[in-house]
Computed example of a mutant assay.
Amino acid sequence: MMTIPFFTLTIVLFLSSAAASKHGASQDLVRSSCVHASYPSLCLRTLSSYSGPANTPRDLAQAAVKVSLSRARKASNYLTTSVTGKSKRERVALSDCVEQIAESVEELSKTLRELKHLRGETFELQMSNAQTWVSAALTNEDTCLDGFEGVDEKVKSDLKRKIRNVAKVTSNALYMINRLE
């Protein structure tokens, strides 16, 4: 029978405890940060399951933008591959929506790059840029849906569900960014 030296066992237990404590602290940060978000349960669900680091408010803001960016890309893919307009009005609305969601993807990408390189001397300008870009992404998402007023309800309801989901996680991302100031 092999015995583990007491010192080695102590180190293993300490490291396990530290990892569990860090995970617990991360989940506490997520819970306390999401409580006042626009969509708290969605915030908690998306950020609790996020696999990257979430040890600081800045990490959470980046994670929230990554979630929003991922969902915007999925919506963009859905719009370009799965949706076809039957009427001319639907095709025009769809074309406009594809363009607006593509702009949202670009704005969220710029936001993520900005958040990854925050510096003290330019912090206020960088935060202003991030807030502006995420706000613009939200506007694009809302404008996308506006173009579908008066079109086939089946087309509209599928789009609305997907785009509203993107808008909700984007709203939560803006909230997380605003908390950094």
Rank of each mutant, 00 (worst) to 15 (best):
T139C: 00
L125H: 10
D146Y: 09
N77K: 10
R45M: 05
V155L: 10
E153Q: 09
M1G: 03
A54C: 08
K116G: 14
R89Q: 07
G147C: 04
G24R: 08
S70R: 12
L145F: 11
A61Y: 15
D142F: 13
R89M: 01
S171K: 01
V105G: 00
S32D: 02
A18H: 04
L60I: 02
L13V: 15
S32K: 08
K74Q: 13
K74V: 10
S68K: 08
E107C: 07
D96G: 08
R58Y: 02
S76M: 13
M1P: 00
Y175D: 00
T46Y: 12
C34D: 06
A18M: 10
S17C: 05
E124I: 12
A130G: 03
S32H: 10
L112F: 06
S16W: 12
V12K: 06
V83P: 00
S51W: 04
H36F: 11
L138V: 11
L79Y: 11
L145S: 02
D146N: 12
T81I: 04
G24Q: 13
T111E: 00
L15R: 11
S51R: 06
S95L: 12
P5E: 15
I4L: 14
S135H: 12
H117A: 07
Q126W: 06
G52Y: 09
D152L: 06
S21D: 11
L79F: 15
S68L: 08
P57S: 02
F7H: 14
R71G: 11
A102M: 03
S87N: 08
I177K: 02
V151L: 04
A37S: 10
S17M: 10
D146M: 09
A130R: 01
T143H: 14
L138E: 14
L29C: 01
Y50W: 06
Y78S: 03
S87G: 07
S82C: 09
A130D: 10
A18P: 06
S82Y: 09
L138W: 12
S38V: 05
E141V: 13
V155I: 04
F6Q: 14
T122P: 00
D96V: 12
R31N: 14
G52I: 01
E149A: 14
S41R: 06
P53T: 05
G24M: 11
Q62C: 12
K66L: 14
K88W: 06
Q100N: 13
T139Q: 08
S41N: 05
R113C: 10
Y78G: 02
E181I: 13
H23S: 12
V92R: 12
S157A: 15
F14L: 14
E90T: 00
G24D: 13
T80I: 03
R31Y: 13
S109K: 07
I177P: 01
R58C: 01
L112D: 03
K162A: 05
W133S: 01
P5C: 04
E141W: 09
D142K: 15
L69S: 03
S95H: 05
L115M: 07
N140P: 02
S157H: 14
H117D: 13
